[in-house]
Computed example of a mutant assay.
Amino acid sequence: MRRAFVVPAALALSLAACGSSKDEYVAYCPEPFTVQDAERLTHFKDGPGRDPRDIAYEAVLTDARSGCKASRRGIDVTLVMRISAVAGPSVSPGTTRVPYFVRVLDASGAVVQGQDFAADFRLSGGSPRGASREELSLFLPHGGNYRIAVGLKPTPEELNYNRRSTGR
């Protein structure tokens, strides 16, 4: 699935004004990093149960990479993420949506752009495994020292479960 988002125009204009010619910038390609506690997600069926029989699916962000092309305007970044999912005993029929996020951070760690997405899977007892390749396009103006944060997006309850199950 291919998606695109752009750093806000005001930021782009202010950062573009920092350089006076195309020869003064050095192109770089920010590598994505996975946010701690956001690389896996265990999702339970609706209701009070939280033992292994109540797991609807488990998902893992298995890889995230970037590729860049520099231009006079800035850097076009192609971000590719791979997400895998496994059906649990309580998987629902139909489409399983695994939420994930992408955040562009500036040098101070402030989020300058971010968006939430979902990877779709068709999981069932007969087809318990799935993999998705998510491709996104970003535009970053020259002059920033950007980092790209990625991860699955657990609910607070799922996050607590993940932390307990991994001993954090």
Rank of each mutant, 00 (worst) to 15 (best):
S14A: 13
A85E: 10
T155G: 05
V80Q: 13
P141N: 00
T96R: 02
R82F: 13
S21H: 00
E58Y: 00
G151C: 00
G126R: 12
A27W: 13
A4L: 15
A110T: 10
V86K: 10
S20P: 11
T34F: 12
V98E: 04
L123C: 04
A16V: 02
G109C: 07
S92G: 04
N145T: 09
T42H: 07
P32F: 03
V77S: 03
H142N: 06
A38N: 13
D106Q: 09
E39W: 15
S90K: 02
L41M: 15
A27H: 08
H142P: 05
E158D: 05
V86T: 12
A119H: 04
S84M: 11
L79M: 05
V102K: 00
G167E: 13
S137F: 15
D106C: 15
Q36E: 15
D54Q: 02
R129Y: 15
M1C: 13
G49W: 13
F117C: 02
R82I: 03
L41P: 08
S20W: 10
P99E: 12
V112N: 10
F5P: 12
G130F: 09
V26R: 11
G167K: 08
T166K: 14
R163T: 04
S132G: 02
T96M: 02
P99C: 07
S132L: 01
P89E: 07
C18V: 15
V91N: 01
R73E: 12
T62M: 06
M1P: 15
P8T: 04
D63E: 10
R65L: 08
L136C: 06
G125I: 03
V80S: 12
R168V: 14
G144M: 04
F33V: 12
E135M: 14
A9W: 10
G114E: 14
V91A: 05
A118G: 07
I75M: 08
T42E: 13
P52Q: 08
V77I: 13
G109I: 14
S132E: 14
T96P: 11
V150N: 01
F117I: 01
A110Q: 11
R147F: 11
A87H: 05
G94C: 08
V6M: 13
R168P: 01
D23H: 09
Y28D: 03
T96N: 09
V86W: 03
R103L: 11
R163N: 07
A131P: 07
G47V: 01
D54C: 03
G167C: 05
P141M: 01
E39V: 10
G19Y: 11
T42Q: 12
A64I: 05
N145L: 12
A38W: 11
V35E: 14
A85T: 12
L159N: 03
L61G: 07
D63A: 13
R40S: 12
R122M: 03
V26K: 09
R103I: 09
V111H: 09
V77E: 00
S66M: 06
V104F: 05
S124Q: 03
G74V: 07
L140P: 06
P48R: 04
L61C: 07
V91C: 11
Q36C: 14
P154M: 05
P156M: 06
H142C: 04
D37I: 11
R168K: 15
A17W: 11
R65Y: 05
Q36R: 15
L13K: 07
T42W: 04
